[in-house]
Amino acid sequence: MPHRGISSFMYLLLLICGVIASASATEDSIFIKFETENLINGRKLWLDNCKGCHAYGTAGAPVPMVSGEWKHRVLKDRTVLYDHAINGFFGPDDTMMPERGGNERLTDKQVKLAVDYMVSLAKHYQNKQIK
Protein backbone atom coordinates (compact mmCIF):
# COMPACT_ATOMS: atom_id res chain seq x y z
CA MET A 1 0.00 0.00 0.00
CA PRO A 2 2.20 2.82 -1.25
CA HIS A 3 0.09 5.66 0.11
CA ARG A 4 -0.46 4.49 3.64
CA GLY A 5 1.49 7.48 5.01
CA ILE A 6 -0.68 9.98 3.23
CA SER A 7 -3.81 8.03 4.06
CA SER A 8 -2.94 7.98 7.75
CA PHE A 9 -2.20 11.69 7.67
CA MET A 10 -5.45 12.46 5.86
CA TYR A 11 -7.34 10.23 8.29
CA LEU A 12 -5.91 12.13 11.24
CA LEU A 13 -6.64 15.42 9.53
CA LEU A 14 -10.20 14.38 8.83
CA LEU A 15 -10.59 13.15 12.39
CA ILE A 16 -9.38 16.45 13.80
CA CYS A 17 -11.41 18.48 11.33
CA GLY A 18 -14.42 16.34 12.14
CA VAL A 19 -14.01 17.00 15.82
CA ILE A 20 -13.53 20.70 15.24
CA ALA A 21 -16.31 20.94 12.67
CA SER A 22 -18.72 19.50 15.14
CA ALA A 23 -17.15 21.78 17.74
CA SER A 24 -17.89 24.96 15.84
CA ALA A 25 -21.55 24.87 16.79
CA THR A 26 -21.00 23.53 20.28
CA GLU A 27 -17.54 24.56 21.36
CA ASP A 28 -18.47 24.14 25.02
CA SER A 29 -19.27 20.49 24.49
CA ILE A 30 -15.89 19.77 22.92
CA PHE A 31 -13.67 21.89 25.14
CA ILE A 32 -15.16 20.45 28.30
CA LYS A 33 -16.01 22.73 31.19
CA PHE A 34 -14.76 21.13 34.38
CA GLU A 35 -16.05 22.34 37.68
CA THR A 36 -13.03 23.12 39.83
CA GLU A 37 -11.89 26.72 39.97
CA ASN A 38 -8.39 25.93 38.73
CA LEU A 39 -9.71 24.07 35.69
CA ILE A 40 -12.21 26.84 34.94
CA ASN A 41 -9.35 29.34 34.95
CA GLY A 42 -7.16 26.87 33.06
CA ARG A 43 -9.78 26.44 30.37
CA LYS A 44 -9.97 30.19 29.74
CA LEU A 45 -6.19 30.41 29.51
CA TRP A 46 -6.09 27.36 27.22
CA LEU A 47 -8.75 28.77 24.89
CA ASP A 48 -6.93 32.10 24.69
CA ASN A 49 -3.39 30.79 24.30
CA CYS A 50 -3.25 27.10 23.36
CA LYS A 51 -6.37 26.27 21.38
CA GLY A 52 -5.07 27.95 18.20
CA CYS A 53 -2.55 25.14 17.69
CA HIS A 54 -3.52 22.30 20.05
CA ALA A 55 -7.15 22.12 18.93
CA TYR A 56 -6.12 21.64 15.30
CA GLY A 57 -2.80 19.82 15.41
CA THR A 58 -1.15 22.86 13.89
CA ALA A 59 2.63 22.50 13.52
CA GLY A 60 2.45 19.04 15.06
CA ALA A 61 0.85 20.20 18.32
CA PRO A 62 -0.70 17.15 20.02
CA VAL A 63 -4.50 17.36 20.13
CA PRO A 64 -6.03 16.47 23.52
CA MET A 65 -9.28 15.31 21.88
CA VAL A 66 -7.34 12.63 19.98
CA SER A 67 -6.59 10.24 22.79
CA GLY A 68 -3.75 8.42 21.02
CA GLU A 69 -1.75 11.64 20.91
CA TRP A 70 -1.90 12.09 24.67
CA LYS A 71 -1.80 8.54 25.94
CA HIS A 72 1.90 8.69 26.85
CA ARG A 73 1.83 12.36 27.78
CA VAL A 74 -0.73 12.05 30.57
CA LEU A 75 1.47 9.36 32.12
CA LYS A 76 4.43 11.72 32.36
CA ASP A 77 5.34 13.49 35.55
CA ARG A 78 3.36 16.72 35.42
CA THR A 79 6.53 18.72 36.14
CA VAL A 80 7.90 17.58 32.76
CA LEU A 81 4.85 18.96 30.97
CA TYR A 82 5.09 22.19 32.98
CA ASP A 83 8.76 22.51 32.06
CA HIS A 84 8.10 21.95 28.36
CA ALA A 85 5.27 24.47 28.34
CA ILE A 86 7.14 27.14 30.32
CA ASN A 87 10.59 26.79 28.77
CA GLY A 88 9.70 25.45 25.34
CA PHE A 89 10.49 22.07 23.89
CA PHE A 90 11.83 20.46 20.73
CA GLY A 91 10.13 17.21 19.78
CA PRO A 92 11.92 14.25 18.19
CA ASP A 93 10.93 15.43 14.69
CA ASP A 94 12.16 18.97 15.41
CA THR A 95 8.67 20.17 16.12
CA MET A 96 8.78 23.14 18.46
CA MET A 97 6.64 24.07 21.40
CA PRO A 98 7.37 27.76 21.96
CA GLU A 99 8.03 29.09 25.46
CA ARG A 100 4.74 29.90 27.20
CA GLY A 101 2.90 29.14 23.99
CA GLY A 102 4.47 32.24 22.51
CA ASN A 103 2.83 34.56 25.04
CA GLU A 104 5.65 35.90 27.18
CA ARG A 105 3.18 37.73 29.41
CA LEU A 106 1.86 34.47 30.87
CA THR A 107 3.14 33.70 34.37
CA ASP A 108 4.40 30.26 35.37
CA LYS A 109 1.23 29.77 37.37
CA GLN A 110 -0.98 30.59 34.38
CA VAL A 111 0.94 28.21 32.11
CA LYS A 112 0.57 25.43 34.67
CA LEU A 113 -3.18 26.03 34.89
CA ALA A 114 -3.45 25.75 31.10
CA VAL A 115 -1.40 22.54 31.15
CA ASP A 116 -3.61 21.11 33.89
CA TYR A 117 -6.68 21.84 31.80
CA MET A 118 -5.19 20.22 28.70
CA VAL A 119 -4.26 17.09 30.66
CA SER A 120 -7.79 16.91 32.09
CA LEU A 121 -9.24 17.33 28.63
CA ALA A 122 -7.02 14.55 27.27
CA LYS A 123 -7.97 12.26 30.13
CA HIS A 124 -11.65 12.99 29.52
CA TYR A 125 -11.37 11.86 25.89
CA GLN A 126 -9.31 8.81 26.83
CA ASN A 127 -11.93 7.74 29.34
CA LYS A 128 -14.67 8.39 26.80
CA GLN A 129 -12.92 6.12 24.31
CA ILE A 130 -12.47 3.36 26.89
CA LYS A 131 -16.19 3.45 27.75
Partner: peptide
Amino acid sequence: RTIYTRKIVNRLVKK
Protein backbone atom coordinates in the same frame (compact mmCIF):
# COMPACT_ATOMS: atom_id res chain seq x y z
CA ARG B 1 7.31 23.88 4.06
CA THR B 2 6.76 22.07 7.35
CA ILE B 3 9.90 20.02 6.88
CA TYR B 4 11.91 23.15 6.01
CA THR B 5 10.56 24.81 9.15
CA ARG B 6 11.31 21.83 11.38
CA LYS B 7 14.49 20.34 9.97
CA ILE B 8 16.21 23.53 8.86
CA VAL B 9 14.88 26.52 10.76
CA ASN B 10 13.85 24.96 14.07
CA ARG B 11 16.87 22.69 14.21
CA LEU B 12 19.62 25.08 13.08
CA VAL B 13 18.24 28.40 14.29
CA LYS B 14 16.34 27.57 17.44
CA LYS B 15 17.85 24.34 18.68
